[in-house]
Simulated assay, not measured.
Amino acid sequence: MKSVDPSHVACILDGNGRWAEARGLMRRDGHSHGADPARRIIETADDMGLEWLSMYVFSTENWARPAVEITVIMQAIERFIDVNLENWHRRGIRIRYLGQPHDLVPLSLRSAMARSAALTASNTGMTVTVALNHGGHSDIAHAVRSIVAAGVPAGQITERTLAAHLPYPDMPPVDLLIRTSGEMRLSGFLLWQMAYAELVFLPDLWPDMTSEKFRDAIETYRHRSRRFGKVAAR
């Protein structure tokens, strides 16, 4: 049947480095230009009444990038939090972070993350989950370790059991994934929650992402037929 509006939209913010290179800049210079589109998309999603928005900003594999670029990314994320936190709080947005703890994440960024999560924890509007040092395989491994630690007998482990032991058990399945830069893969993002997501791959690099393109992706989703393995009604 035709889809209604999505409840949970996930975005992979891809193409900052290539955007900079195309303009004769250093790759690392592109990351600061990704802040405005991220702010616009959060506000647009909130204005549209979305309940959940997840944004992939740094994967577990991204540690293989040059150290200078990683430093710039971390600094850009910290500035992004500091500049936008009060506005998010006024809007009633809840901010959460998904990813494995890592000592290489600067202490100042970890502090900004903790401060923003604490300030907005009781907000009842849209939940924005920022995936930083995240990998879907790591999340599933985390859930398995948690199940083992809880002593759940093997015969009692179901899909519901595993979902309940993920880092955020209350996170619903992803309805729509939007990835910029023309790449057509998940890159390990929310693998459990992405099982039946509709996928929209945009040719635009992330710094060129606009509210209109986000709304267009939502409109594309509305015209998809979501069957979840069932035969389409005739």
Rank of each mutant, 00 (worst) to 15 (best):
G135Y: 06
E86G: 06
P153L: 10
Y196E: 08
D208Q: 10
D204H: 05
F214Q: 04
L205R: 06
S116F: 02
A164Q: 08
H8V: 02
N123H: 03
H134K: 02
W88Y: 13
S211E: 13
R160I: 12
E86R: 10
S138T: 12
L205T: 00
E43Y: 15
I147C: 08
E78K: 10
W52K: 10
D204L: 05
N62F: 06
R160D: 15
L13I: 03
S211N: 03
W206D: 01
F214T: 01
F214A: 01
P106C: 06
R91A: 11
A195L: 10
L107S: 05
W52T: 07
E159L: 12
H142D: 14
T44N: 13
G30N: 07
S146P: 05
T158L: 08
E219N: 12
I93K: 09
G24M: 03
A154L: 12
D5M: 14
V9H: 00
F80M: 13
A163P: 00
I42D: 09
K2H: 04
M209V: 00
Y221M: 08
G24R: 02
S225K: 15
D216E: 14
E69D: 08
H31L: 07
L50H: 08
R91C: 07
G135P: 12
G30T: 11
N87W: 07
H165Q: 10
G99K: 05
R222Y: 04
D46M: 13
R94D: 07
M55V: 11
S146C: 11
R39L: 12
E212W: 08
R27A: 04
G34S: 07
D82I: 13
I218Q: 10
I95P: 00
I95F: 02
L109G: 01
A164F: 09
A232G: 15
H31I: 11
R215N: 08
R179N: 10
I147V: 14
S187C: 07
D170R: 11
T120P: 00
S116H: 01
E43R: 15
H33I: 08
A154C: 04
N84P: 03
K230N: 15
H137I: 10
S211W: 00
R110S: 03
V105N: 01
E78R: 14
S108T: 11
E219C: 12
A195T: 15
L85Y: 02
G17L: 00
D47H: 13
E183D: 14
D175R: 09
H89T: 14
L25F: 09
G151L: 08
M48R: 15
L53D: 07
D103I: 10
S187E: 05
R234H: 13
R185C: 09
R27D: 04
G30Y: 09
M74Q: 00
E198G: 05
V105D: 01
